[in-house]
């Protein structure tokens, strides 16, 4: 360090000093970093448990230095339910892509939300199946081209992109729902705040928190990382707007 300067930001110690396998610019990396920054800030490393999905983030346990459990494809919410019920003093989060949480695992997701299970969903919605080669997901935008919708998603046959945050916000026992992104520094700061808030609610046993991330997949979208930010701003956010959809904590304060 140069003399006369102070350190104001460095990589959190809770994020292992390993190169993540994610493609350049992928928000999976950003979200791992933010999660571990919050774990470090709240000093909860020894009592945090993450649940890994199937998808690009299947190896998330290699990077986040907290206890982690792998789940079968889509079943992270069921595994998180079991862990949180047996170890209620732990801070538990499920970390899932849209193919995982909103396709094969929709039932587990909705029922955990309906029961108001006291853990945090981190839902990485990149609108595509990244790991398997960019196939259409339930969240793929209308007319968006993917490897299985080469002419664009046809809503007449495939339906409209599923808005999971809006859906789970309708469940009475879901306490806090926010959609965030990591496409700008300001939005990334908000994403970090949302994670922190959800963990604090969880420590107060408030019920389910659901954080949807309007994420990217430069490789599956066949664009550069910088172009993926333009796609988010111009195409994704008009359909999946950012912001708090539900915050019962805030309503209590009012």
């Amino acid at each position: 360090m140069k003399e006369g300067y102070e350190l104001i930001y460095k990589r959190p110690k809770t994020l292992l000093d390993k190169r993540m396998h994610y493609c350049p610019g992928c928000f999976h990396s950003t979200m791992h970093k933010l999660l571990m920054e919050v774990v470090e800030e709240l000093d909860i490393q020894d009592r945090t448990v993450g649940i890994c999905p199937v998808g690009c983030s299947v190896f998330a346990y290699d990077y986040m230095d907290v206890d982690m459990q792998e789940a079968a494809h889509g079943r992270a919410a069921a595994v998180a339910t079991g862990i949180k019920r047996m170890l209620p003093d732990r801070i538990v989060f499920s970390y899932q892509g849209d193919g995982d949480l909103a396709a094969i695992g929709t039932a587990e997701t909705l029922h955990a939300c309906n029961r108001g299970e006291n853990f945090t969903f981190i839902f990485i919605n990149n609108g595509i199946y990244g790991m398997t080669g960019g196939q259409m997901a339930p969240t793929t935008l209308e007319n968006q081209k993917t490897s299985t919708s080469p002419y664009g998603r046809n809503s007449a046959t495939a339906g409209m992109p599923m808005k999971m945050a809006e859906i789970v916000a309708t469940f009475e026992k879901v306490y806090y729902v926010e959609r965030v992104s990591c496409n700008t520094p300001a939005n990334t700061r908000k994403a970090r705040k949302a994670i922190k808030k959800s963990f604090e609610y969880q420590m107060q046993s408030r019920g389910t928190s659901f954080i949807e991330v309007a994420s990217n997949c430069p490789s599956g979208w066949k664009c550069t990382p910088i172009e993926s930010l333009d796609w988010i701003k111009d195409q994704v956010l008009p359909y999946y707007p950012l912001g708090v959809l539900k915050d019962l904590g805030k309503e209590e304060v009012k």
Binding site: L7, I8, L15, S29, T188, R192
Partner: peptide
């Protein structure tokens, strides 16, 4: 440093 996905950036500020 906040936008860097890979946490590759360390930031220092003048005292």
């Amino acid at each position: 440093s906040i936008i860097c996905p890979d946490a590759a950036i360390t930031v220092y500020k003048k005292i």
